[in-house]
């Protein structure tokens, strides 16, 4: 069994330290990513989960420096293979994007160019990053389509995106992303727009390609099922902060943060019959970013919140097993009930 402590021994391919990204309006600043820390171990998959507005997509866009006005990466470090990407020039970043770090987006139709053939779009990265001729690049594109399991690739390579189904388009996106053999692949909700039977095909494909090519993956998703199935480690985000970071088995078996527990409990499952029991809910809804709670961001919705939670923001602390947790309950300063039953196991 892999433990999170391994992360310290394994060399991370990417490490994010205190990343801050904000969006500025006339009146106020929205802290979309508010001091995020995590590491992606080499050859492994890190999942980032959270609900809408948690900052998971903005985190990934910040890594590749794709944030546009009125947004801005305000601070922190993004260390990729020992170098801080935030210090790179735009020209250097262009050499990294699509070459060393690639990204797949949720909606393949809007991320593919409708007026170029699939082959032309895959060829582009071979021509730019590997200086291949047009002809060579096209041959390699056919190979890439074969790799991602598209039947009769010689014919498909000449087709336009609208001629392909949703699942096929997502395969093309993956082919494009993997063209230059990247070391890190960022997948932002890669299967959310797809039907489950097609999702199963795509997830299987990604797993298979990771085994063969040895790349590291950041999987951004809201689907805890996808996380359980594909990830080695998970970072749970809430309102721009990581609230829990753990090895995937630990997270699902012994979730620690009340938010993680709430998410798992509120999920209706197809494999478990609750009979007539109600789903457990997280009360209320995510506050507006303009109205950020002063202490722990989750305190207004947390069933355990006490004085200290509403007043002061807890730090993301590493526990004995190497997992990380941002919650006062697990600290010496906890001032609520001495024994709290967060996930059915008592803490003291």
């Amino acid at each position: 069994m892999t433990k999170a402590t391994d992360t310290l021994i394994e060399e991370p391919i990417l490490e994010i330290r205190n990343l801050q990204t904000s969006f500025f309006t006339d009146k106020f600043e929205v802290k979309a990513v508010d001091g995020v820390n995590f590491a992606v171990p080499k050859g492994k998959t890190l999942g980032i989960v959270g609900e809408s507005g948690s900052g998971k997509s903005i985190t990934s866009l910040s890594i590749l420096r794709l944030i546009q006005n009125p947004g801005k990466v305000k601070g922190g470090e993004v260390i990729f293979k020992g170098e801080n990407l935030l210090d790179k020039t735009e020209a250097q970043m262009r050499q990294i994007r699509g070459n060393e770090i690639s990204m797949i987006f949720q909606e393949p139709m809007t991320s593919l160019n409708p007026v170029y053939t699939v082959g032309q779009q895959i060829s582009e990265s071979f021509q730019i990053h590997q200086k291949m001729s047009k002809k060579e690049a096209m041959l390699r594109s056919v190979e890439m389509l074969k790799l991602v399991g598209i039947p009769s690739p010689e014919r498909r390579v000449k087709q336009y995106p609208h001629e392909l189904s949703g699942g096929m388009r997502q395969r093309v996106m993956i082919a494009m992303a993997l063209a230059c053999d990247p070391e890190l692949l960022i997948a932002d909700e890669p299967t959310t727009a797809l039907d489950v039977t097609i999702q199963a095909q795509i997830l299987e494909l990604m797993k298979d390609l990771q085994n063969r090519l040895g790349m590291s993956i950041i999987m951004i998703t809201h689907d805890l099922g996808v996380v359980a199935e594909t990830c080695d480690y998970v970072a749970v985000m809430y309102m721009g902060k990581v609230v829990e970071y753990a090895a995937v088995k630990d997270l699902f078996k012994h979730p620690k943060h009340p938010y993680t527990v709430g998410l798992l409990n509120s999920l209706p499952r197809h494999d478990i019959d609750l009979e007539d029991e109600e789903l457990q809910v997280i009360k209320g809804s995510v506050p507006s970013p303009a109205d950020m709670p002063k202490g722990c961001r989750f305190a207004p919705r947390c069933p355990f919140a006490s004085e200290i939670c509403r007043e002061r923001l807890p730090d993301l602390e590493e526990s004995e097993d190497g997992n990380q947790i941002r919650c006062w309950i697990y600290t010496d300063e906890w001032d609520g009930e001495p024994e709290v039953n967060v996930n059915g196991e008592r803490t003291s």
Partner: peptide, 9 residues
Amino acid sequence: SAIPVPDPE
């Protein structure tokens, strides 16, 4: 069988 189960084990 295609639905991912939110339980690694």
